[in-house]
């Protein structure tokens, strides 16, 4: 028995060491530092008070929450209809769509931002096209709304991928029963489909908002 637990410790050690050095210690230090007054080493809530009373920080937090809320809501709505359409269709297109979802969800950061700059930046292809045809408004990619657009773009594939498994949980019999009871397609989704998907939708929503709050690349640029 003694020997057994020795092997266990020995085998667990590399994982624990790596995680401790590169995940737990840095995070712990980050949390600790946020409560520590640097000059005289006392515990303080000063930094937190400052964040919530300084207009610049407050504005930054508000902006983050606004963008993450709106983009997650829009991303999820599109993901819902995309998921529905995915299970109603079949064949090559379905496979291709799945491939596109996977590819674009892995693709973010600098390349994505650059692609959007080419498409809709100040001299972007779409911007010029809209100006020439006289349809162009005064859309500016390097603004809050521009940032929102990029976020919505990269929310859609991820949200759809996360929602697809939930659609598998909707049983065919429910749909049949609803049809027999004379329910319209809308009332089926409103009263049966969506309530059953809700746990996954909310999970995806929280996940997406987290991702949004923590993702910094696109913000750096804009």
């Amino acid at each position: 028995m003694m020997k057994k637990s020795k092997t266990s410790v020995f085998l667990l050690a590399p994982f624990l060491i790596v995680v401790l050095i590169y995940e737990l210690l840095p995070l712990g230090q980050l949390v600790l530092n946020s409560f520590l007054q640097k000059k005289n080493h006392t515990i303080t809530l000063e930094y937190y008070i400052r964040i919530f009373t300084t207009p610049v920080y407050l504005q930054a937090i508000q902006n983050s929450i606004r963008i993450s809320l709106i983009s997650a809501l829009i991303g999820l709505s599109v993901a819902f209809f995309a998921g529905k359409a995915y299970f109603e269709s079949d064949g090559k297109l379905k496979q291709f769509f799945y491939l596109v979802l996977n590819m674009t969800s892995n693709f973010s950061g600098v390349p994505l931002t650059f692609a959007f700059m080419i498409l809709m930046g100040n001299t972007g292809v779409l911007t010029l096209l809209l100006q020439k045809t006289g349809l162009g408004g005064d859309f500016n990619l390097y603004s809050g709304n521009g940032l929102l657009l990029v976020y919505i773009y990269f929310q859609i594939p991820l949200a759809t991928l996360l929602l697809l498994p939930a659609f598998l949980g909707l049983k065919k019999e429910w749909r049949e029963a609803a049809t027999i009871l004379n329910a319209s397609s809308f009332s089926y989704w409103w009263k049966i489909g969506i309530p059953n998907l809700l746990p996954s939708i909310l999970g995806t929503f929280v996940c997406k908002r987290l991702g949004c709050l923590c993702n910094g690349v696109c913000v750096d640029f804009e």
Partner: peptide, 22 residues
């Protein structure tokens, strides 16, 4: 079914547009 196919096609185009343009 046609509406679903159309939606998927539209989404594919939308998602691939930035790369196609690049």
């Amino acid at each position: 079914k046609k509406a679903s196919i159309l939606l998927l096609l539209l989404l594919c185009v939308y998602l691939l547009l930035p790369f196609a343009v690049t």
